[in-house]
Amino acid sequence: MGEIVTVRYLCIGCPLGCRLEVDEDLEEHAIVEVRGFSCRRGKEYAIQEHTAPQRMVTTTVAIDKARWARLPVRTSRPAPKDKVLEICRALRTVRVSAPIASGDIIVRNVLNTGVNIIATRDMVEWASPQNIEA
């Protein structure tokens, strides 16, 4: 058995916010013990968060010919947590044009994560982007 490190997490399952602790054997790359949970879901969350944390990413991309300047998008399923900022950075250069339908794939397999970026709303074509009648 190698050196054991303890990593702390805040459980997000409910407002109780259990302070979770995960002991990992650094040599074996194995979880030795999980403490601090008060339900089964808490324990599962600790293990997931420790081994392969994932996040649903929601952000916006630029859109032309629409009522609004931004189109809201999300990942088609949770992406690896350490890719969140990189994904958002990749979306910086993306620019789409109305019309767009909710669920349309905006970027396929973003950063080779196997995750698609999809639109989360319809955006109809709009003559004047800001629609103000002066």
Binding site: T60, A62, R89, R92
Partner: peptide, 11 residues
């Protein structure tokens, strides 16, 4: 700034 401008300059 426009969000996309900021993004471009931040990279």
């Amino acid at each position: 700034a426009r969000t996309e401008e900021e993004k471009a300059s931040a990279t």
